[in-house]
Design a binder for these strands. Structure first.
Length: 268
DNA sequence: CGGGGCTCCTGTGCGC
DNA sequence: TGCGCACAGGAGCCCC
């Protein structure tokens, strides 16, 4: 599941490899991945455009072209891999240096768009703050929580609340903060909020450092797995002993999503 | 506004 | 052993 750390890793890899290259051509194997504009306009719109800059907002990767922006959302199983042409590629971009940018996606839930202004996309417009940017302060987080009656774990995953956190990192953040995933957001005490806030930054920063988690199909732009898996405390560890207390990790369903936590450590 | 459930999709893993 | 079904989940959508 590519979340903020995985998309950030891809972004950094691509910054080292494709900035300044031109997109010579594109091969659309699965048309439904291109959400807008029409395939014809899409092809015409990107041909011979230079890749100027790479941006990330939440889990969304944005390539700034000489005109327009190319938007990628990997959803569950999307991959962006630079190098040789991959036969499994659903959408494949040929670059001016003869190499390829492959968009792979086993479950075909990912999306690609070509737009004039990425900031005007509704999904981007309604997004919450970037958790690793200065705009995301403790005071702001406190204020945001006050207005929400929802359980904290599904709330952390809402892109309109905070950008970039998904199921895996929400679980890891709450374990680090020793907060129960079902705790109502507006009931959190200040000391509890003061545990969650730095846990968000720490977990995401550490995951970027380890180049993401490959619990599912995630690969970085070089096609390699992330190494944060070895650091995972609770996600996917149902019935296994907690690394801190030795108690067994539980799995419950919150908001229809598998939620892992240690009942002994996460009583807050 | 909140919460639940369905949808998209396909590989995996479980039960019978 | 093999088949078939439930499950995995990011985000949009509908409904109550």
């Amino acid at each position: 599941m590519p979340e903020l750390p995985e998309v950030e890793t891809i972004k950094r890899d691509l910054e080292d490899t494709i900035i300044g290259k031109k997109i010579a051509d594109v091969e659309i194997g699965v048309a439904k991945i291109i959400k807008e504009p029409s395939p014809q306009e899409f092809i015409e719109g990107i041909q011979n455009k230079e890749i100027k800059k790479i941006l990330r907002r939440g889990k969304v990767l944005i390539l700034k072209l000489s005109a327009q922006y190319l938007i990628f959302h990997l959803r569950m199983t999307g991959q962006i891999i630079y190098g040789n042409k991959d036969e499994k590629s659903k959408v494949c971009f040929l670059l001016s240096n003869g190499r390829y940018l492959n968009f792979l996606d086993q479950r075909v839930l990912g999306e690609i768009k070509l737009v004039n202004d990425w900031q005007e996309l509704p999904f981007i417009k309604q997004m919450g703050p970037e958790p690793l940017e200065e705009e995301f302060t403790l005071e702001r987080f406190q204020q945001m929580l006050k207005e929400k009656k929802t359980k904290i774990k599904p709330l952390l995953m809402e892109q309109g609340f905070i950008a970039g956190i998904g199921n895996l990192y929400a679980a890891e953040i709450l374990f680090k903060a020793k907060i129960n995933p079902s705790h109502p957001a507006n009931n959190l005490t200040l000391p509890e909020i003061k545990r969650i806030y730095p846990a968000i930054k720490k977990v995401l920063r550490q995951a970027i450092k380890y180049r993401g988690s490959s619990v599912d199909t995630y690969r970085d732009a070089r096609g390699e797995k992330g190494k944060f898996e070895q650091k995972i405390q609770v996600y996917g560890r149902k019935g296994k002993p907690c690394f801190e207390c030795g108690g067994l990790i539980e799995r419950i369903s919150l908001g229809g999503r598998g939620t892992y936590f240690c009942p002994q450590c996460q009583k807050g």
